[in-house]
């Protein structure tokens, strides 16, 4: 079992070349609130890695840091040996051409059809003839099972369909790395099953590296090769989903078993209940 506390969680014995992303001693604050306090982790190439943690723990912020949308206060984020923190705008855009991201809500362009949404990155970055664009778009839509919806507008799609179209768009440029931000939120069981299967299948068939940010323990455990559990700005446990299930740490047990109270308290910090009811609190 692999379950290591804090910054010491990073080294795993895996050679650096096996990792597509290496994050070291990451610090990030929003206002006075510390989001990451020396976070270190590694994302292995060609695998599905899950980032889990309670709500508000900074999972989405981590993705924004990895994609260079925000900069950390301290630390490094190495992607294939290049530090995202030090990249200039042009380098950052070149790097982003190699990654795909699936947003929680799909983030489809609402004034474009399904077809045009998937074609969007191809039209912006390539000068491919229309016949080839059409071929690629239909192939990607077929892969997510929505070739028949190519004429539809985003407003006509269900939540699950929108996410599948967004997935087709994310893989349109054949990226090396794909990031999923809470891909299961608000989906019915069938759509959720489809997305779960697609993440695994895409990863294996296209030779991608996938990072899935989620707090759906059951779904993510079924497809992740490696899991990181983040809490209080640090990695509190890592390993295979089975390792985390067997972990006896109070934080891990509370999260994996969905317990209402524990190291993450049920009550938000508040003054004494009695004092507050009597109106004596400051």
């Amino acid at each position: 079992m692999e379950a290591i506390e804090g910054a010491a969680a990073a080294p795993t014995g895996r050679s650096v070349d096996d990792n597509i992303i290496v994050i070291r001693d990451l610090h990030y604050s929003r206002g006075h609130r510390k989001i990451f306090d020396g976070l270190s982790l590694e994302i292995p190439k060609g695998r599905v890695t899950a980032i889990m943690g309670p709500s508000g723990t900074g999972k989405t912020t981590l993705l924004r840091l990895v994609t260079g949308q925000i900069l950390p206060d301290q630390g490094s984020i190495l992607v294939d040996g290049e530090d995202v923190v030090k990249m200039r705008r042009k380098e950052l855009y070149e790097y982003r051409k190699r990654i795909g991201m699936l947003f929680q809500n799909g983030a489809l362009l609402t004034d474009l059809s399904v077809y045009e949404n998937v074609a969007f990155p191809l039209r912006e970055h390539t000068r491919l003839p229309e016949r080839l664009v059409r071929h690629i778009v239909l192939t990607k839509l077929h892969a997510v099972g929505l070739r028949g919806a190519w004429r539809m507008m985003p407003s006509e799609l269900s939540g699950g369909m929108a996410r599948r179209v967004a997935l087709a768009r994310a893989i349109a440029m054949d990226p090396d790395l794909i990031l999923y931000d809470e891909p299961f939120v608000g989906l019915d069981p069938i759509s959720m099953g489809v997305i779960v299967r697609l993440i695994r299948r895409m990863n294996d068939a296209l030779g991608l590296t996938s990072i899935v940010v989620s707090h759906d323990v059951e779904e993510i455990s079924s497809i992740a090769d490696r899991t990181y559990l983040i809490s209080d700005g640090r990695v509190v446990a890592s390993g295979s989903p089975q390792d985390l299930q067997a972990n006896c740490s109070a934080v891990v047990m509370q999260f994996m078993n969905g317990m209402a109270d524990g190291p993450v308290p049920f009550h938000f910090p508040a003054p004494d209940y009695g004092e507050q009811l009597l109106g004596r609190e400051d």
């Binding site: 994609t67 949308q69 855009y93 070149e94 982003r96 051409k97 990654i99 991201m101 947003f103 929680q104 809500n105 983030a107 489809l108 362009l109 609402t110 969007f120 990155p121 912006e124 970055h125 768009r169 440029m173």
Partner: peptide, 20 residues
């Protein structure tokens, strides 16, 4: 477009939303 992450989505597709 900003509220629904469409602009962020463009940035992550390496497309400058100001220009597009």
């Amino acid at each position: 477009m900003r509220a629904t992450d469409q602009l962020s989505g463009m940035e992550l597709m390496a497309v400058d939303p100001v220009r597009r």
